[in-house]
Structures are given as structure tokens and as C-alpha cells.
């Protein structure tokens, strides 16, 4: 129990460090739902990370993007009505990492996404486009992109966000420490291959108030230490 108290304290410290707020449009990010903002969002994250950290704020609107990489000290706040929309071509998920995702991070600390906004995976379109390219032989069967994939990160916090229409897993966390997932709504009911959260080799993970409606496994919990699950259910009301 003492450990958990320490962990809550750590989280609090982690969240309160970054004071600077940046509006998305400052970096040329456009809310029209058709401009692919990958370049600008990545520039924003890099810039904020290099300038002592802070929060990148998205107000109401649809923000189209391909893979972006979170960097230490950068939080993203999605205000109510803001939607981060994943691009629908698998080529837009072009990272070299083993577990691809719309939002990736490796070895970063003090990162997270919070607010009442949505991360929209465009799952059906992405799956269709992937299958088309596979049948032409243009791409090989590769790792299936998650909405969020974090490896070896510390002080990670995702709160309040709606994860919609992820093609495969919503969140994949490998080897992360001090993780808080709270008040998340993971909805993949329209995607045949949708799945929930994968925790692998993580330490000090708090899952609270989650609602997971997916077609495949809602939670994979492997080789983790100190995982707490509170008030978290599937669409059928079953505890995770």
C-alpha cells in the first residue's frame, strides 16, 4: 500500500511539472479534418520537448495525422470536441518500431494525453486499405498499428480520452513504469479486429474507470508488477 501511495505522489509530480501551454494552430496545425498535420504535430512535440516541456492543446475540431512520436515532458490535451483522426493509409504509420501505432513513444518520460476529446483510429478504412496493398504484394504483413504504443516510458498518463475505432489494439504498453489510465472509453464495436489494452512487463500501473467495448480481448495483462484495476468494465458490464 505504501508503494501505491508513493506512486500516486509520483504521478502528481509528473503531471504538475509542465506549465507552458501551446495552441495547436501556433504550429500550423489545422482543424479542418482534411489537412494531414503529421509534420506540424511532430514539430510541435519536438519544439515543446526542447523548450522545457508543456502542453499542446487541441480545441474543438478534427485533426488528421499519421504516426507521431511523443517526447519527454510533452502532454497533449484534447478539449471536448477535439478529435485526433488517424490517417487511413498504412503508409502513414511508417515508423520503424516493432509495435507501430498512431501515437508512439520509446524511452520518454512525463508524457500523456488527457481531456474529453477523441482519438479516432479510422479502423475500417485503414484495414481495407491495408488489405488492398497486401493483395497487390506492395506491403508485407507487418505489425498491426495500435492507437497508442509506448515502450520503456516513465510517468505515463492517459485520462478522460475516448479511443474510437482503433483497427487493432487501443493501447499497447511495453516495459513502462508508473502508468495511469483513467476514465478512458475504448470503443471498437464497429471494427471486427478491435482490441483493448495490452500491458507487458510494466510496473506500477493504475487502471481506473475504464469502459472497453471491443471485439477481441479487452485487456492483456502479462509479466506486470503492481497493477491495480478499479471500476473498469466491458460493454457487458464485466470487470476487466
Amino acid at each position: 500500500m505504501k508503494k501505491y501511495k508513493l506512486f500516486v505522489l509520483l504521478l502528481f509530480v509528473g503531471l504538475s511539472v509542465s506549465a507552458n501551454e501551446y495552441n495547436a494552430s501556433f504550429f500550423g496545425i489545422k482543424s479542418d479534418g482534411i489537412t494531414n498535420n503529421t509534420g506540424s504535430i511532430q514539430k510541435a512535440i519536438d519544439y515543446i520537448s526542447e523548450h522545457r516541456g508543456g502542453t499542446l492543446v487541441f480545441y474543438v475540431g478534427r485533426y488528421l495525422t499519421g504516426t507521431i512520436h511523443l517526447k519527454s515532458g510533452v502532454k497533449i490535451r484534447l478539449e471536448e470536441g477535439a478529435i485526433l483522426v488517424g490517417a487511413s493509409s498504412p503508409y502513414d504509420y511508417n515508423s520503424k518500431s516493432a509495435t507501430k501505432a498512431l501515437i508512439e513513444a520509446d524511452g520518454q518520460s512525463n508524457i500523456g494525453i488527457y481531456g474529453k476529446g477523441v482519438i479516432e483510429g479510422s479502423g475500417n478504412a485503414l484495414i481495407k486499405n491495408t488489405n488492398d496493398l497486401l493483395s497487390l504484394g506492395y506491403i508485407r504483413k507487418d505489425s498491426e498499428p495500435a492507437l497508442v504504443s509506448l515502450s520503456n516510458c516513465m510517468n505515463v498518463s492517459f485520462t478522460g480520452i475516448h479511443f474510437w475505432n482503433g483497427p487493432y489494439n487501443a493501447l499497447v504498453l511495453n516495459g513502462c513504469k508508473t502508468v495511469n489510465l483513467e476514465g478512458l472509453d475504448i470503443n471498437g464495436k464497429n471494427i471486427a479486429t478491435s482490441a483493448g489494452i495490452v500491458l507487458n512487463g510494466c510496473k506500477w500501473v493504475n487502471l481506473k474507470d475504464l469502459f472497453v467495448e471491443v471485439k477481441k480481448t479487452p485487456l492483456v495483462n502479462l509479466n506486470n508488477q503492481f497493477v491495480t484495476v478499479q471500476n473498469s468494465i466491458t460493454s457487458k458490464g464485466i470487470s476487466l
Partner: peptide
């Protein structure tokens, strides 16, 4: 059941959930 203005430019904001 699904969002009726999906795909239009400047879609209405998702709000008042759940």
C-alpha cells in the same frame, strides 16, 4: 447509430459523453 455528418468538412464536435 453512427455520426451523421461524418466525413464532411468541419464536422460537429463530439461532446456530452457518455
Amino acid at each position: 447509430l453512427s455520426k451523421p455528418d461524418s466525413g464532411y468538412s468541419y464536422e460537429g464536435p463530439v461532446e456530452d459523453l457518455p
